[in-house]
Amino acid sequence: MENLARSIANKISKKLGYDDEKTAVIAYGLIGLFQFIIILCACALIGLVFGFFWEAMIIFWGAGLLRRVMGGAHSSGFYSCLFISVVCICILAYICSLIKVYSDSFYFLLAYLVIYAAAFVIVYKLAPVESPNKPIKESKRVRLRKKALMTLGIFAILTVAQWIINNLCDFKFYISCALTVSVMWQTFLLLPAGKAFVSAADRIFNAGKHTK
């Protein structure tokens, strides 16, 4: 897929007369676009078939938005990223779809508050976690940390608001469970344990690829 992005970028640059740097920027953008579209379509399709479409979409957008400002553990290649992302989103969304009907209980609110409190501490201490392929300058680091804490705050407000609305009104909707799971997942990826998990999943994916 990366080669396809580079070949499309080369074709565009040849036709429109762009230089090498502009070609690299287009290829970089196309790789990101392909990654985004493939993960979104795969999760939406699997979610529609197995009945957890909305949970999968909340986790996809929630964790994706958090990741933009927090960074986190990275996989070694394009395909292992697709594999780990789609599998994890679908498993987490399935679990959310099973437990969401119980999420109006007080114990869930308590769990949400504990998870958000832990996430605020971890994000304040560790975010943003950079990748060797994309170093982050100190000024940008401070800006991203602020944005990460703000995003986390908005997610926390939405989670508590949904819990209150569901307990006060007859109208029921469930976003808090999936939103909190996306915060949990993204915060986990900031920790050394998250890095170890992604490395292990990477190894499993690469081993499976080599045995074919």
């Binding site: 953008g29 990101g32 990741r67 990223c81 780990i84 976690v129």
Partner: peptide
Amino acid sequence: ATLFATLAATSACFWWLYQPEE
């Protein structure tokens, strides 16, 4: 593609787990 690349450049990383060289 340029718009997407610029959006990625202003953030900590790409959308999910893979980050190509910037």
